[in-house]
Amino acid sequence: MQSYIVYFGAHSHGSEPTSADQERATDSHHEFLGSFMGCKEKAKQSIFYSYNKHINGFAARLEEKEAKEIASRNMN
């Protein structure tokens, strides 16, 4: 496994997010990665940082195959 950053661009909540906005962003990262890993719990174990304030994305430990699948889906 290697560490990867998955970047989605800007958040819809703007530059002054509330704690609820940040929690929703983190939850959406878990949901997104869970769709590749088979469940949200595996995603929670894999993600070690959620970029939930100014940029939208997360850092996670992934297998190369998972990273390639995520990259190919995000490009479409």
Rank of each mutant, 00 (worst) to 15 (best):
N56D: 12
S15H: 13
K65I: 00
E64W: 09
Y49T: 15
G34W: 01
N56K: 03
H29R: 05
A43S: 09
F32N: 10
N52A: 04
E23D: 02
H13S: 12
E66C: 14
S12V: 15
K42M: 00
K65F: 02
H13P: 01
F48T: 15
I70A: 02
D21S: 05
E41F: 03
H30G: 05
Q45N: 04
N74G: 07
H11Q: 06
F58Q: 11
A25S: 10
S3L: 09
S46T: 03
S50Q: 13
K53V: 15
S19R: 07
G9S: 12
F32I: 08
G9Q: 09
K65G: 02
G57H: 00
E41G: 08
V6T: 06
N52V: 07
S15M: 12
H13Y: 12
G38A: 10
E16N: 12
F36M: 10
N52T: 11
Y4C: 08
E63C: 10
K44L: 05
S50E: 14
M37P: 00
E69G: 12
V6Y: 03
E16P: 12
E23Q: 08
S12K: 14
I5R: 07
K42Q: 15
A10D: 15
K44Y: 00
K44A: 01
Q22Y: 01
K44C: 03
I5Q: 10
I47N: 05
A25G: 04
I5Y: 02
Y7F: 13
I70E: 11
N76D: 15
S35T: 09
N76G: 14
K40S: 06
L62C: 03
S50V: 06
P17M: 07
S28K: 06
R61W: 14
F58A: 11
H54N: 07
T26R: 09
K42L: 01
M1W: 04
L33H: 03
H11G: 02
E23W: 02
K44P: 00
N76Q: 15
R73D: 13
S19H: 08
S15E: 15
E16Y: 10
S46C: 08
Y7M: 05
G34K: 07
K53T: 12
Y51C: 15
S3V: 12
A59T: 06
